[in-house]
Every structure is written in C-alpha cells, then in structure tokens.
Computed example of a mutant assay.
Amino acid sequence: MGHDIYGVNKEGKEIAYARFSMGNYNATILYSLLEADKYYAGVSGSGDWSTFSIQQIEKALNEYKQLYKNGDTQNWDLKQILDFIQNCLATAKKEESVKVYFG
C-alpha cells in the first residue's frame, strides 16, 4: 500500500509521478496543495481521477513556494512534490489542463 500519484497528458501518457509509502505523512502535502483532500484514503489514494486547470496548478505551485521557499532539495519528498507540480504545470500550459490519478 502507498500513494502512487500520476499526472497524465491528454493522450494518457505519464508526465508526472509521486510515490509515498502508506505511513509517509508528506503525501498529505501534495493532496493539500492540489486541494484534493477528498482523494486521500489514508494508506493510499482513493483510486480516482481529477482534472486540474492551469490556474489550479499555478495556485498549488505558488502555495508550495510560499510554504517551502522553493523547497529543500535535500528533502526527497519536497523535491518530488515540486517536480510533480512543475511537470503538471508544463503539461497544463500546453494542453489547458492535466489529469491526475490518486492511487
């Protein structure tokens, strides 16, 4: 069990990935930044998809930067969260949205 969170483009190709073990509380940071707490199911994600707009992903990135000042790159979880959001934003800017799976 654990949290496997995927970002995909319109073709269904994976463009972002974040992995947290079931006991890793840092998973909640990503759910919170994406305002996707309803997809948090404790030891894993709910198994549902959600589509995010450019504005939603930009908001998540801005909140991340305010909270973590671009992140401690020595902290693996904060780095993977930043990478995930940035990759989703790049796709959303090209395609106007990005789809995320919370598993």
Rank of each mutant, 00 (worst) to 15 (best):
M1G: 10
G2E: 07
H3A: 06
H3D: 05
D4P: 01
G7Q: 07
V8I: 15
N9D: 15
N9K: 08
K10F: 08
K10T: 06
E11F: 02
E11V: 01
G12A: 07
K13I: 07
K13R: 15
I15S: 00
A16H: 06
Y17R: 15
A18N: 12
R19W: 13
F20I: 09
G23D: 13
N24P: 12
Y25S: 15
N26Y: 12
N26P: 03
N26L: 10
N26I: 04
T28R: 05
T28N: 05
I29Q: 13
L30V: 04
L30K: 01
Y31M: 02
S32Y: 00
L34M: 14
L34K: 03
A36N: 06
A36D: 02
A36G: 08
D37F: 00
K38M: 08
K38T: 05
Y40D: 04
A41N: 14
A41V: 05
G42N: 04
V43W: 10
G45Y: 08
G45L: 10
G47E: 14
G47V: 08
D48N: 15
S50G: 07
S50P: 05
T51G: 00
T51H: 00
T51A: 02
F52I: 01
F52E: 09
S53I: 01
S53T: 12
I54Y: 01
Q55R: 09
Q56D: 07
Q56S: 06
I57K: 00
E58P: 03
K59W: 01
A60N: 03
A60W: 00
A60T: 00
L61F: 01
L61A: 11
N62A: 14
N62E: 10
N62Y: 01
N62R: 06
N62D: 11
E63V: 13
Y64P: 12
Y64W: 13
Y64F: 15
K65S: 13
Q66T: 12
Q66E: 15
Q66G: 11
L67H: 06
Y68E: 11
Y68A: 11
K69I: 11
N70I: 05
N70Y: 08
G71L: 05
D72L: 04
T73M: 13
Q74E: 15
Q74K: 14
N75E: 14
N75R: 06
D77M: 06
L78P: 00
L78F: 04
Q80P: 02
Q80N: 13
I81N: 09
L82K: 14
L82A: 13
L82C: 08
L82G: 07
D83H: 02
D83P: 01
D83N: 11
I85V: 14
I85Y: 02
Q86V: 07
N87I: 00
C88M: 07
L89N: 05
A90Y: 03
A90V: 04
A90G: 12
T91L: 03
A92E: 08
A92V: 11
K93C: 08
K93S: 11
K93G: 05
K94M: 13
K94A: 15
